[in-house]
Simulated assay, not measured.
Amino acid sequence: MALGRGGVSLVIALAVMASSCQTEDKRPLPHYTSNGRGVAPTNAAENKSNRYFIEFRSRYALTYGHTYVVFGRADKSGKMINPEVAGLAPASDNAAPYVLGHFIPVPASTGATDGDLEEQYRSASWRVMLTDDEYSDTVAYIRKLQATTHLWEATVYNCNAFVADIARHMGYKAPGIWLRPQQFIATLREMNTG
């Protein structure tokens, strides 16, 4: 039986989904912090001027995990002050839209999901310290992305794609969107910090 063009596309999409689900997450990876130039702040003046941050994160979940960003201000010790979360996920706690979203686009939410700020679920992270201007620009882009993104689809526009858009807006390179979230965050950091 010959497959038409649509059938071949479906087979390829299913193969990509299946292969991305075959790997397992590792133990939690260390937390990395850098400034916008890819290195950790080294002097007090730079530390003081970079009180804002964005943190690219992944967390464990019952499925293959979740990728999202946490952003806000940090105190002198690096502790987050009133952090905000942005990510892309099906807009339901019900599993049906999540499963369906592997085949067709489903309604999405772009805010926090259960477990995003709970330390025991974090699988990888990369915090970038930002100047006031960098932070304002990044947050404006996140808000625009949240206002215009209404659908989630696992193979076309998933949580990794949402975070990749934010990273590219900031001038970073982003890996492919079909990696597991932990691999995506680790690769994002490695691609941009060496």
Rank of each mutant, 00 (worst) to 15 (best):
E24G: 06
N35A: 10
A40K: 07
N43Q: 00
S19N: 11
E55D: 09
Q22R: 11
A45N: 07
T63E: 15
R59I: 02
T67C: 10
E46G: 06
F53N: 12
Q22E: 11
Y68E: 08
R59H: 03
V70Q: 07
N47F: 08
Y68T: 04
K26R: 06
V69E: 05
I81W: 10
H31V: 01
R51S: 15
F56L: 07
S49P: 00
K26P: 01
E24W: 05
Y60S: 06
F71L: 08
A18F: 08
V11M: 09
G36F: 06
H66V: 03
T23A: 08
L14R: 12
R73H: 09
A40W: 04
E55M: 06
T23C: 02
S77N: 13
A13F: 04
S58V: 01
D75C: 11
P30Y: 01
Y32M: 13
P28A: 09
F56N: 01
R37C: 08
M80Y: 15
V69H: 02
K26N: 07
N82K: 13
L29N: 11
A61N: 01
R73L: 13
E46N: 10
V11Q: 03
A45R: 08
V11A: 14
E55K: 05
L14M: 15
N35I: 04
T23I: 08
Y32E: 15
S20I: 04
T67H: 01
S49K: 10
A45H: 07
G78L: 04
P30L: 06
Q22H: 11
P83K: 10
V11F: 06
N47S: 09
T63I: 11
H31A: 11
S49Q: 08
I54M: 05
Y52P: 01
T42Q: 08
A18P: 02
Y32W: 12
R59V: 01
V11C: 09
A61C: 04
N43P: 00
Y64H: 09
S49C: 07
N50Q: 11
A40N: 04
M17G: 09
V39L: 14
G65L: 02
Y32K: 14
G65M: 00
S20R: 05
K48V: 07
A61F: 00
R73N: 13
L62W: 07
Y52S: 08
M80C: 14
T33A: 12
V69F: 03
V16T: 12
E55R: 01
L14P: 03
G78V: 03
R57I: 00
S34F: 04
